[in-house]
């Protein structure tokens, strides 16, 4: 019997809300959205944790401009503080090296992190999900039963096709869906909002493409400044 599975719920019991930022496709802005949400919650005074589950391409640490922050051991692992956020990622262990980890090993690594990480009391735990509807999505649904999914997409029909599949899966498995955000919007088209509305899923809003955002990556104050100028519509 795997001893880690029974302890995960205890590790998460003092967390009020768990939000999994997902989207099916890569490059739609999941990591940035997860990071900005965590930063804003933290600055509003909420106790916030941020978990990067994208083991194949972790990027939260780049977005937040983190270097050398390490967890400490205390009857488990205590995540390091990152701009007021408790931050956990595979990069604490893999560093800048690639992590060539397959499905079953991804599950095992995720279960290990969930079993040993002591988040303490949190108002929000934000999870940056990897692209795809594979092991990590199924594991989050299986192991983090309270996780609510926030879906990020772009207006591309290619992306929407994958989002449709993800939403259908989440509905079938009765996983809570907060809603869909259209990111990096370039046109005034209402195509996506209508499509999402037809699926009976809340369409939460649009975020315009921000050409200056790339220059703000790694600088938290600039990122938040950039977002405050272009708030969610």
């Amino acid at each position: 019997m795997d001893p880690r599975l029974t302890i995960i719920e205890r590790r998460l019991k003092d967390i009020k809300r768990i939000i999994a930022v997902s989207g099916g496709k890569g490059g739609v802005g999941k990591s940035l959205t997860a990071s900005v949400m965590a930063l804003i919650f933290s600055r509003l005074g909420y106790k916030t944790g941020l978990l990067d589950l994208d083991f194949g391409g972790p990027s939260i640490h780049t977005v937040l401009g983190l270097k050398g922050a390490l967890p400490r051991e205390e009857k488990g692992i205590i995540p390091p503080d990152a701009h007021g956020i408790k931050f956990m990622s595979i990069i604490h262990y893999a560093g800048d090296n690639p992590s060539p980890i397959r499905g079953i090993d991804i599950s095992n690594a995720m279960i290990e992190l969930l079993a040993i990480t002591r988040w303490g009391r949190l108002d929000f735990l934000i999870i940056d999900m990897p692209p795809g509807i594979g092991d990590s999505t199924l594991d989050v649904i299986r192991l983090l039963k309270r996780a609510e999914f926030l879906i990020i997409t772009t207006e591309s029909r290619v992306t929407l096709d994958v989002v449709n599949k993800l939403l259908n899966l989440l509905k079938e498995l009765k996983a809570p869906i907060i809603g869909v955000i259209e990111n990096m919007k370039l046109t005034r088209s209402s195509f996506l909002s209508k499509e999402i509305g037809a699926l009976d899923v809340p369409f939460l809003g649009e975020i315009d493409f921000d050409s200056g955002l790339e220059d703000a990556i790694g600088n938290v104050d600039h990122i938040l400044g950039s977002y405050s100028k272009d708030p969610i519509c």
């Binding site: 019997m1 001893p3 029974t6 302890i7 692992i77 079993a115 040993i116």
Partner: peptide, 18 residues
């Protein structure tokens, strides 16, 4: 030490099995 977290998992699973 982080072994404590895994030991808690063993005890919790043993209790569930019991």
């Amino acid at each position: 030490m982080h072994e404590w977290a895994l030991a808690e998992g063993i005890v919790s699973t043993a209790l569930k099995e019991a």
